[in-house]
Simulated scan of single mutants.
Amino acid sequence: MKLIKSILLLSSLLVFFVQGTVMAQKVSGELKKWHKLSLEFEGPNTSESAEENPFLNYRLNVVFKHATTGKAYLIPGYYAADGDAGNTGSTTGNIWKVHFAPDETGEWSYEVDFKKGKWAAVRTSGKLKVLPLWMGHRVSLLLPNPINRGGILGAKVDWIMLANAILNLPERENTF
């Protein structure tokens, strides 16, 4: 009986810990094709002037994978201090960010890899310390197919003008 109680207690703690990990992340942006998604994680509290330099001694990578096509993208993340340092001027905090603009509708999953060690940002050594904060954390995002394709992407336009550069959209068969 004690064994069953112990297992139930440990299971409850595990569920609580996993839920806490999931709740520590924030996804913002529109769940639409070509729109920027920002993932925000609460991680180690540090500062730009810390001896353990967050830009050099930590590495955050997120792999985004499309369920249907199998496309996968490795996107590096970065230390973002308080999450709004561009406006607040903060040099300390515990926020880490990743940005991604999906090129397909449908289901995307992502997996987080966060490591710490001397020169971790530029080293590929397997000897780096794995930080278990979000390690192996997998989440799925669903980008629905658009119903009303209004606006520039829904019109008979095969290109978008951005700062004097023309980008052809790959899903269009002909340009102009």
Rank of each mutant, 00 (worst) to 15 (best):
M1K: 05
L3H: 15
L3R: 05
I4M: 05
K5C: 12
S6M: 13
S6H: 05
L9M: 08
S11H: 10
S12F: 08
S12H: 07
L13C: 10
L13Y: 08
F16M: 02
F16C: 10
F17A: 11
V18A: 03
G20K: 00
T21P: 03
T21Y: 01
V22L: 12
V22R: 08
V22I: 04
K26T: 09
K26W: 01
G29V: 03
E30M: 08
L31I: 04
K32E: 02
W34M: 01
H35Q: 03
H35S: 08
S38P: 00
L39W: 01
P44A: 13
P44M: 09
S47A: 14
S49T: 15
A50W: 05
A50R: 01
P54W: 04
L56W: 07
L56R: 10
N57H: 14
R59V: 12
N61E: 02
N61M: 04
V63F: 03
K65D: 08
K65H: 03
K65C: 06
H66W: 01
A67W: 08
T68H: 11
G70N: 06
G70D: 04
I75N: 05
P76S: 02
Y79E: 01
A80E: 15
D82M: 04
D84V: 13
D84P: 12
G86D: 10
T88A: 07
G89L: 09
T91M: 09
T92Y: 11
W96A: 04
W96I: 08
K97A: 09
K97C: 13
V98F: 04
F100Q: 02
A101F: 01
A101S: 06
D103V: 00
W108V: 00
V112M: 10
V112G: 12
F114E: 00
K116N: 12
G117L: 09
A121V: 06
S125R: 10
S125P: 07
G126P: 10
G126R: 06
K127N: 05
L128P: 02
K129F: 14
K129A: 13
L131C: 15
P132L: 12
W134K: 01
G136H: 11
G136F: 08
S140P: 01
L143W: 04
L143T: 03
P144C: 07
N145H: 11
A155V: 08
K156V: 12
D158W: 04
W159H: 12
I166P: 06
N168Q: 12
L169M: 06
R172M: 05
E173W: 05
E173S: 10
N174H: 07
N174E: 12
T175Y: 14
F176E: 14
